[in-house]
Nucleic acid binder design. Structure first.
Lengths: 108, 108
DNA sequence: TCTTTATGTCGTAAACATACGACACGAAAT
DNA sequence: ATTTCGTGTCGTATGTTTACGACATAAAGA
């Protein structure tokens, strides 16, 4: 990459892109759904639920944490991963606005 | 990548991930918005509207075409890019379903 | 104490993404 | 006829992602 020109786009578009990237892998969608379904904040159980190696799952968790869509706080000895509902709501709103703004017209 | 294990996830999650990836770059969001705003199917005008090199924009257009969110048909001598409203609606629906399914609970 | 379990870090290979210049080519303008 | 314009392809450098094994470590259990 010769230069990162991402900074030239509006902040709201950039943030939408960040969230889109976070959910741009089936494993990460699966992780989010798993976290939402298991009302309890689980830890390495995620590894059992997702058909990928432990390290890979951990890596996907890290990507989600980087996007701030989830938190991973140490709760005693176990790590408690859960969805950051503020950020999750922000994502929903950004997507909603974005998708509303884009009104496709079939022209060809 | 040692293996592509994506096929082990449900089709609907995979498709959502494909669309998310398509819009996971600010330039591609900008392109979609530009296509939606310019009611007419434009061609290389996109290059002028997006602050990136012509080849890079073409590449982003190709990514969007691969996701089938846009079409790029040759219309006489000019190429007519426009949003594929069927796919766009499918994306909206998939995102909507997905985001509805995931109900975050702050637990930590 | 020794082992197992849960967790995490590090390294690394292969693939993919991003950005762009150089070149090609046909149609339109001069 | 020659140049320019719109379009596209190819190559290529660099960075990021995905996947996973190997190792580290601290607490729990035998």
């Amino acid at each position: 990459m010769i230069s990162n020109k991402s900074e030239i786009f509006p902040a709201e578009q950039q943030q939408a892109a960040v969230y889109a990237k976070a959910i741009s892998h089936p494993a990460r969608i699966a992780i989010l759904r798993f976290l939402a379904e298991s009302k309890v904040c689980i830890t390495g159980d995620i590894t059992d639920a997702i058909p990928l190696g432990r390290t890979t799952v951990l890596q996907h968790l890290q990507v989600l944490k980087d996007s701030e869509l989830i938190t991973g706080d140490i709760d005693g000895k176990r790590v408690c991963y859960c969805i950051n509902s503020d950020r999750y709501d922000e994502m929903k709103q950004l997507f909603d606005e974005l998708l509303k703004k884009i009104n496709p017209i079939n022209c060809c």
